[in-house]
């Protein structure tokens, strides 16, 4: 009998405590800066072009082969009369978010710090009606950092 009353007491004390529910769509939890949503590409605000040179390092390192990279000559390179020091630059970049397993390996292998994990809520709220919509194109991948929403976090 004592045990029954004790457990009734536990639930009664919980009844008086404050609920722990987060009402999700209205209140978003503060995401830590190292939160890993999905990989995105970073934008070189000084040079006004992506950091990515299309070197295929991430594509090779990806365990699930969710990336496709195409490289091109940089039209903004110094030899072409531009200002950039990047000889090659990314032409097309697809990441299939449906396959990505968010392991962070692409970020670790990148030599140019050109790819990072999205740590905003945008990166988590990616539901779509069609799987093919999960394949992200280059402008979509660049948008988050270009608009300045990404919280800075550099892997030490």
């Amino acid at each position: 009998m004592k045990g029954l009353l004790k457990s009734m007491g536990v639930t009664l004390s919980a009844f008086t405590r404050k609920p722990v529910t987060r009402e999700y769509p209205e209140t978003h939890k503060q995401l830590p800066e190292r939160d890993r949503a999905f990989p995105i590409l970073l934008w070189d605000h000084g040079m006004n072009e992506p950091f990515c040179t299309g070197c295929h390092a991430c594509e090779r390192a990806c365990p699930v082969e969710c990336m496709t990279v195409l490289m091109k000559d940089n039209p903004n390179h110094k030899s072409q009369g531009g200002e950039s020091s990047r000889r090659k630059i990314i032409d097309k970049f697809w990441i299939d978010y449906g396959r990505c397993m968010r392991c962070n390996i692409c970020v670790e292998v990148c030599n140019f710090d050109a790819i990072a994990m999205n740590n905003t809520w945008q990166g988590h709220e990616k539901s779509v009606y069609d799987r093919s919509d999960l394949v992200q194109e280059l402008p979509q991948l660049l948008a988050v950092h270009r608009s300045g929403e990404l919280k800075p976090w550099v892997v030490p």
Binding site: T11, A14, F15, R17, K18, P19, V20, T21, E23
Partner: peptide, 13 residues
């Protein structure tokens, strides 16, 4: 609502 409060939830909102 009552059971939600016993479980420290909010119940239907």
């Amino acid at each position: 609502k009552a059971i939600a409060r016993f479980q420290m939830r909010l119940g239907p909102t």
